[in-house]
């Protein structure tokens, strides 16, 4: 019996050694260890073995089986590993070929700039509101301290629908609409489209966008205005940005200022981008004129406020170094896809 088992074992080892694929290996396993396999046949003939020898023979058979299984397993691992190596070796690709890039659309640079501005001010607790683009004379001028004969009315080259209705020349009217709601305090920005009778060229467009800002509360100061806009400038143009406030004049704010930021290209040393000035004019601002508050039925002795207006296209042109404003309204895909 022992000889018989050894014979089976040798035969199995020889067949395993001949097998060069997992399939052939499996044939060997079935032929030896399967239901009708040679070793199984041996087990079946156990009934012929004397009862006292059975445990010993059984143990021998099991040892032989375990031995063969172990070698089968080792060989299969070896074969599979070799097959995998072979596959991997044939699957080498040229990793320098271009990637499959998804083609989503692109956001307009105006919108990107606006998203940034909104992000900054929402973070500081501002609500984003809107006002009408076709506006009444009162909201665009009169309520902003620009009475009928004021030269500023000419300066802004207004498109009129008729004597009463016009295309707003500034988003500042949104200040009035917001204050008239009678809910205080106010902390808002109002982005929107404005219109001025300028012919189209590289730096002018008859339609462009502003973002208006307004804060009205008790104890709001010019220092708060400075702090707020300085924070805005840093978030928009980088932490290193310096700001400069210059006195200016707007009919609806007093004191008024224009804010310059240090040139984000040269850092203030002076370059072609900032016309060698080191500074770039960004926005106009000031403390809400008490007369404007009064017209909105807000008591200027109790409440003060500040307001500012940013030209959106100006920010977009500066930030993305776009040299011609017309590009913003042509919608040429070769332009848009860069954003």
């Amino acid at each position: 019996m022992k000889e018989k088992l050894e014979e089976i074992r040798q035969k199995a080892l020889a067949k395993i050694a001949e097998s060069d694929t997992p399939d052939k290996l499996n044939e060997v396993r079935v032929a030896i260890l399967g239901k009708k396999g040679e070793l199984t046949e041996v087990l079946k003939s156990m009934k012929d073995v004397s009862p006292e020898d059975r445990p010993k023979v059984g143990q021998l058979v099991n040892e032989t089986r375990a031995d063969i299984e172990k070698i089968l397993e080792e060989t299969r691992n070896k074969l599979e590993s070799a097959a995998l190596d072979l596959r991997l070796a044939t699957e080498t690709i040229d990793v320098t070929l271009p990637g499959d890039v998804p083609t989503p659309g692109h956001r307009h640079p105006n919108q990107i700039a606006l998203d940034e501005i909104e992000r900054v001010f929402i973070g500081m607790g501002y609500e984003v509101v809107e006002g009408p683009e076709i506006e009444k004379d009162y909201y665009n001028f009169e309520a902003l301290n620009i009475p009928a004969d004021h030269p500023a009315k000419d300066e802004q080259d207004t498109f009129y629908i008729n004597g009463e209705m016009l295309l707003r020349t500034q988003t500042s009217g949104c200040q009035i609409h917001e204050m008239e709601k009678g809910r205080l305090p106010i902390r808002m920005i109002a982005p929107g489209r404005v219109f001025r009778a300028d012919e189209v060229d590289a730096t002018h467009s008859p339609s462009f966008h502003q973002v208006e800002g307004l804060v009205v509360d008790k104890h709001v100061t010019f220092a708060d205005l400075k702090g707020t806009l300085e924070e805005f400038a840093r978030q928009m143009f980088g932490a290193e940005t310096k700001v400069k406030f210059r006195p200016h004049h707007f009919p609806f704010t007093e004191p008024s200022a224009e804010m310059d930021v240090s040139c984000f290209k040269c850092g203030g040393k002076g370059c072609r981008f900032c016309k060698n000035e080191g500074w770039i004019e960004i926005l106009g601002c000031g403390m809400v004129h008490p007369h404007v508050l009064e017209m909105c039925k807000i008591d200027p002795k109790e409440y003060t406020g500040f307001a500012f207006g940013v030209g959106l296209e100006r920010i977009a042109l500066l930030k993305y170094e776009i040299d011609d404003m017309r590009l913003l309204y042509e919608n040429d895909y070769r332009f848009l896809k860069q954003f």
Partner: peptide
């Protein structure tokens, strides 16, 4: 106030942030 501010220098006015809480959005 503007006369005081501009001749004392806008640069010399402190920078602060408005007090109070506000919900943005």
């Amino acid at each position: 106030a503007e006369e005081v501010a501009r001749f004392k220098g806008y640069d010399n006015i402190p920078t602060t942030l408005p007090g109070g809480n506000a919900m943005g959005g």
